[in-house]
Structures are given as structure tokens and as C-alpha cells.
């Protein structure tokens, strides 16, 4: 299976295969086709970064551009999901969630429970997350914890093309609303991906690197920063184990606890703001369920508690670095009982 594709292509391929397999799968979003209503080329954009380019030609009835009205079309995707469709709605940047949040957290998330189990809402909301694009405070956020906080929502944030394809197809088949977070700085990242359709189950973390001295729990782009840190630490004789959560809700605590029990040390790395995020959640759960296994205090690596700055130099300081992660790991080793 030597074929390598980028994460961007993996999204495209997953949507392509899902639409081909199931006519109730429809994609909607702003400029996901592009050129609608004009006198130039159709499929002119394929999304703001070209992720869905080419899908309109293959599935013209399943690819819909929308007006710039997130509350209306994200809500419509949710309503259609409750009525037999499997919509995949693209909300360009997760930062725009504010515009349509009610439809997601009061409507989609609650239907099934609130209606006594009588409704399914198989909707997927795809959005770009993360900093590093010089896109400033309103186009760079990692708002994953907001969604993980809400009962009824599933939250996915893959770190590579293989996981992206399998998790996106799983998201589309899943009967609950899924917030599917694509890190814009990983779109170009390539790895081997099978051509055939496949799924990766939710709630199964992936150990991307094995090690015995310290566990790093993370997801998304930070998996790569952690791998960079691990390479440096390996030269110092420190073997780090890296757990890529892949899905933040459901959360695979078993894998985390097993790893921490083995290494006795934990560094949580999260690109989200430091308060009430995935890192704090993991830390709390490890304290509750594996306190006795800890040989050192838990360390966290996150950005500072600020909005994402525009200036490239500030943004680079904002995003957690491999050096910061390595420092945190060293602290757990030095501070050991």
C-alpha cells in the first residue's frame, strides 16, 4: 500500500467515497464548490484551501454551496440529519462557531437524550482549527475543549492523513453529531493511506511512539511537536511514550492510564488555552485513577492564556514548541520521587 497522500487529500477521498456509497451523504458549506451563480468556472475553489476541490464534478447533487449564514445552514444540516440525511457541513474555521453555536449545543447535541432516545442526529461539522497560519485571533483558535465539554457531541481531531480518512468516514457513519477538527497546518502532511474505504473506531487512542520514561498525551499538530521533542530526548537517553488521543470525545482513558502506569510520568500537551482544556481534563483523570503510579508531578504544556496574536514572532512564541515539551519532560524526570 505504498501510496502516500496528504491530509487534505485524505479528507477529499473520505468525502468522495462516503458520498459514492450513500446518497444521503450531502456536503454543504461556503465556497466548498465555488463559482456558483457566476459566469466563470464552477468548482472554482473547492473550499477556502481547496480541500473539497473536484468533488462537485463527481457528486453534483451532493455538493452544495451555502449563503454566508452559518446559523441557518449548520442548523439546516442538523435538521436534515434528524430527518434521514447524513449531512457533512463545513464551517470554514472553528472560530466561526460563535455564529451558529446554539444549533450545535442546544439542538444537535441534545435531541437524542431530550427526546427520550427517539432521535438520531448523524451530522458531521468539519472545521479548521489551530494556529500557525498568521491568521490572527479570529481564525486560529483551538476550541476543541468547548465541544468536548458538551454531552451529546463527539469531537475528533486527527494528526495525520491515515487517521483523517478513517475517522472522517466513521464520523459520517456515526449516528451522533460529530465536530471534526482539521488542523490547517497539517493539511500538507503526508503518510500512507489505503485507497479503499475504511473506518477507525472512536475512543481508541493511538500510541505513536513507545517509551518507558514518560508519557505525553496530546492530539492534532501537537503530536508532531511531541515527536520532535521525543527525538531530542532520546539522544539524552529519555524514552518518551506518545499517546495521540485522536478523538477527544469519546476519550480513551484506558490507553492513557495504562501508559502512565507504565512510565509513572505524564506531560499533557494541548494547543488549546490552558484553563479547562483537554490537558487539564486528562491530568484530573490521571490524578483520580492513577495517582499512585505517578513518580513526579504532572506537567502541562499549553499556549499562554491569551488570544492568538497576529505577529509571526508572537504567534511562534504562542504555539507550544518541541523545546517547551522537552523541558516539561525533563522536569518530570528530575522531579521524580
Amino acid at each position: 500500500m505504498a501510496r502516500k497522500i496528504s491530509m487534505k487529500q485524505a479528507v477529499n477521498e473520505a468525502l468522495d467515497q462516503a458520498m459514492a456509497a450513500d446518497p444521503t451523504v450531502i456536503c454543504m458549506g461556503e465556497d466548498i464548490v465555488g463559482g456558483a451563480g457566476g459566469n466563470g468556472e464552477m468548482d472554482a475553489w473547492g473550499g477556502v484551501l481547496g480541500v473539497t476541490k473536484g468533488l462537485y464534478a463527481k457528486h453534483p447533487k451532493q455538493m452544495m454551496d451555502t449563503p454566508l449564514s452559518e446559523s441557518a445552514y449548520i442548523g439546516a444540516a442538523i435538521g436534515a440529519a434528524a430527518c434521514g440525511m447524513r449531512p457533512v457541513a463545513e464551517l470554514m474555521f472553528i472560530d466561526f462557531m460563535g455564529v451558529c453555536f446554539d444549533q450545535i449545543f442546544n439542538q444537535a447535541a441534545k435531541f437524542k437524550y431530550m427526546f427520550g432516545g427517539k432521535a438520531e442526529t448523524p451530522v458531521v461539522i468539519r472545521c479548521m482549527v489551530g494556529a500557525g497560519f498568521r491568521a490572527a485571533a479570529q481564525h486560529s483558535q483551538m476550541l476543541t475543549p468547548l465541544f468536548a465539554h458538551i454531552p451529546g457531541l463527539k469531537v475528533v481531531c486527527p494528526s495525520n492523513a491515515y487517521d483523517t480518512k478513517g475517522l472522517l468516514i466513521q464520523s459520517i457513519r456515526d449516528n451522533d453529531p460529530v465536530i471534526f477538527c482539521e488542523h490547517k497546518n497539517l493539511y500538507a502532511h503526508e503518510c500512507e493511506v489505503p485507497e479503499a474505504s475504511y473506518t477507525i473506531p472512536f475512543g481508541e487512542a493511538n500510541i505513536v511512539r513507545e517509551g518507558k520514561h514518560c508519557t505525553i498525551v496530546t492530539y492534532g499538530l501537537m503530536v508532531h511537536r511531541s515527536l520532535d521533542a521525543a527525538a531530542v530526548l532520546a539522544k539524552e537517553g529519555v524514552e518518551v511514550e506518545i499517546v495521540d488521543l485522536r478523538t477527544l470525545s469519546p476519550l480513551d482513558m484506558d490507553t492513557v492510564l495504562e501508559s502512565v502506569t507504565k512510565t509513572g510520568r505524564l506531560v499533557c500537551v494541548d494547543e488549546a488555552s490552558p484553563r479547562c482544556n483537554i490537558a487539564t481534563d486528562i491530568s484530573a483523570q490521571v490524578c483520580m485513577h492513577a495517582f499512585g503510579a505517578l513518580k513526579a508531578q504532572i506537567e502541562m504544556v499549553t499556549p499562554p492564556h491569551t488570544p492568538v496574536p497576529f505577529s509571526p514572532v508572537l504567534e511562534d512564541m504562542y504555539i507550544p514548541s518541541a523545546a517547551q515539551i522537552a523541558t516539561a519532560v525533563r522536569k518530570t524526570i528530575k522531579g521524580s520521587k
Binding site: 457566476g38 449563503p67 454566508l68
Partner: peptide, 12 residues
């Protein structure tokens, strides 16, 4: 006349 690549008339 345009919102990104989409014509005004399509979206309004």
C-alpha cells in the same frame, strides 16, 4: 458582486 468565489445572486 461576490462573496469569496460565489456570486451575490447565488447567495442572496
Amino acid at each position: 458582486g461576490y462573496a469569496e468565489s460565489t456570486s451575490r445572486d447565488y447567495g442572496t
